[in-house]
Simulated scan of single mutants.
Amino acid sequence: MNAPLLKLSAVETRIGAYHILHGVDFEVPRGQLTMLLGRNGAGKTTTLRTIMGLWKPSAGSVQFDGREIGGMATPEIARLGIAYVPESMGIFADLSVRDNMVLAARGARGADDIDAARLEWIFNLFPAMKTFWLHPAGKLSGGQKQMLAVSRAIVEPRKLILIDEPSKGLAPAMIANMIAAFRELKNTDTTILLVEQNFNFARQLGDTVAVMDDGRIVHRGAMAELADNQDLQTRLLGLSLAAHQ
């Protein structure tokens, strides 16, 4: 069996006086989409931010591709091939879609420096990015901004993408578009760790799942197993996936 691309072992994170993560343990298999689920306040966003180096672990190990990255600076972690799409999306509202993409492409001085074939692939995933290429990002709809945030993360090949609640606040049609795009992305060599509150979204996309509660991992396994077990859903998440289909 291949070694996992990402492995967290006994990770603890403290933010000021607050002890948020209490010994987090889980793995992200290569080439798969792993869902990180849990109730609000369980520690999911803190986990992503700790992996990305935005918050430093106070204990434990974060290994990426066999290398310890816990405590490394965020730019160093990004250079290893990890991209992060925060819940806030992290786009530059005053800049055009094009300029947002140029800034995300390391070393690019202009749009002509972005790999043309990859850009066309992104346009196929998210046609609105081509339509609004020269428009200010701040003028996009919520769903289009989310598409731009994901497009920025994949403008160059990445080994791992961390995504925080991509469907939050989106209309059903936009969610369906996002699901289709992630399915296409799964067909590449990209590994994804995705935090999500929309359980139907999780059920359709997840290969594996880790469930958090109170800063700890309380369940690990196949997403299909959790999707088929309503008692387990209720115990771990407080409600069943069936209610969100």
Rank of each mutant, 00 (worst) to 15 (best):
I154G: 09
A243Y: 01
T74R: 02
A243K: 13
G143Q: 08
S141T: 15
A176T: 07
R14T: 02
Q32D: 09
S96P: 09
M147D: 13
P172Y: 04
R67S: 12
S141L: 03
H244R: 14
E225N: 10
W121V: 10
F64C: 03
L193E: 10
G169Q: 05
F92M: 10
F126W: 12
V11A: 04
L80A: 12
P127E: 13
T47N: 03
L160Y: 01
I91N: 09
L95A: 09
L21W: 03
T208M: 14
L236F: 11
V218M: 11
R216P: 02
N198W: 05
I175W: 00
L205G: 15
A17S: 12
I217Y: 01
A93E: 15
P166V: 07
G31A: 11
H244K: 14
M223H: 02
T191G: 04
I20S: 06
W133G: 04
L140V: 10
H219C: 03
Q146G: 11
S240W: 01
I114N: 02
A83D: 08
R203V: 15
A242Q: 15
A210D: 06
A224V: 10
Q204Y: 06
A104E: 14
N100D: 09
M223N: 12
F132M: 15
N40P: 07
K130E: 12
G110K: 02
S141K: 01
K186D: 06
D164Q: 11
Q245V: 14
L8G: 06
L95P: 06
G16A: 07
R158T: 06
D214G: 06
A17Y: 01
T208N: 13
D228V: 00
S151M: 03
V218S: 07
T131L: 10
G70H: 01
L5R: 02
L162M: 07
M174W: 00
P172R: 01
R39Y: 02
A149F: 00
G221N: 06
A111F: 02
I51K: 03
S141C: 08
R109C: 02
N2G: 08
A176F: 00
L134Q: 15
A137S: 15
R106V: 07
E27P: 06
I154A: 12
G215Q: 04
E196Q: 10
G53A: 04
N187V: 03
P172I: 12
M52P: 04
K44G: 11
T208E: 13
P127C: 14
E156W: 01
P136W: 00
G60E: 07
R39D: 08
W55V: 11
